[in-house]
Design a protein around this nucleic acid. Structure first.
Lengths: 180, 180
DNA sequence: CAAGGTAGTGAGTGGCCACTACCTTTCCCG
DNA sequence: CGGGAAAGGTAGTGGCCACTCACTACCTTG
């Protein structure tokens, strides 16, 4: 297998591991094991653990942006936004991306990670703005709801039976302008 | 100093340290140093590092709820919610609580931490509901915006000069029912 | 002043873990 | 078919860190 292919598979393994443990709570050992290579060889493919983490963060944000683009298709305006909202809920089934996002935010004390996270968030923001053409206020509300979804996934609220939790997990796209 | 007082001061030190590094990225050494005690004595006051982290999480959520109650005062309805919104923005000046919340969410892979975090979130949710008496939809939007504020604090968006970032950091309480 | 309890510390210890040095295999190309 | 680069592994190593143990200083109470 070529080094480039290996790098990709290591990246895929790292996303899964980092999503749960974060940068400091995940060992390179476990990533290597999941990728099916020896742990030292991982350092031939990525110079440092932090660099691998940053690569993971960048990939997750970029793929989420691509996910948005596919969801919007040829739509524009609030129709595009509704489609993107639904597509974000789709990520709930495999929570990896949502959890990785949280790990990125909570690791922002490190300047390099903060820079990467800002860049990813910015890319996401600009993608949503470009695809919908909607004003700041709508984009802001969409992202706010997205961040709420992230923590709902982290706490695994669907698993607890209480009503408010269940309501939160219903992917209803509420009307943008509630009449009244 | 009594053990109870020490416990409180250790807790205060731990909030600061955990807010930046999270559970796995923070050493008990640094917490003890900040609290002004020896590292072994920390384990006389808290049985384990994780237990200390959970105590921190519980305290932060409870204090945030208290913060809400003070902000609402005698107000009810959307007036109470607006007051609470502003009070949450106040936490931005000392971002410790917001960052700790993020650390809690991103550490939820551990079942004990997940349980504590769920409890804290639930307490916050019920406090907001009780104080305002507003329906689910309003509370949900408030929390969504709150989660967005958390990640804005983590990424320190006020520090970057771009327009969208600046707009996000303006604590305007948008009207609950935009006319039209 | 004896006796016991409480606050607090110095000196470990065992394990994990990021990262390194060096060796082996494979395979392509002239 | 020889050689060299690239893929990959084995065996460390040094440092950090959660947690323990054995001990001291002090304070209260009878």
């Amino acid at each position: 297998m070529s080094a480039e292919q290996r790098r990709a598979s290591v990246l895929a393994a790292a996303v899964e591991e980092f999503a749960h443990g974060g940068l400091t709570g995940t060992s390179t050992e476990s990533i290597a094991a999941r990728a099916g290579i020896s742990q030292p060889y991982l350092f031939r493919l990525f110079p440092t653990k932090k660099a691998l983490f940053i690569a993971v963060v960048e990939q997750v944000f970029r793929r989420t942006a691509t996910h948005f683009e596919r969801a919007a298709g040829e739509l524009t305006g609030s129709e595009a936004l509704d489609a993107i909202k639904l597509s974000y809920w789709e990520l709930f089934t495999d929570q990896t991306y949502l959890l990785t996002q949280l790990q990125a935010y909570s690791s922002c004390y490190d300047p390099d990670i903060q820079a990467a996270t800002r860049g990813g968030f910015r890319e996401l923001w600009e993608t949503a703005t470009r695809l919908t053409g909607l004003p700041f206020e709508d984009i802001s509300q969409f992202f706010a709801h997205g961040m709420l979804i992230n923590v709902i996934a982290a706490m695994d609220l669907p698993a607890i039976g209480e009503q408010w939790a269940q309501l939160l997990c219903a992917p209803d796209v509420e009307p943008a302008n509630p009449t009244g």
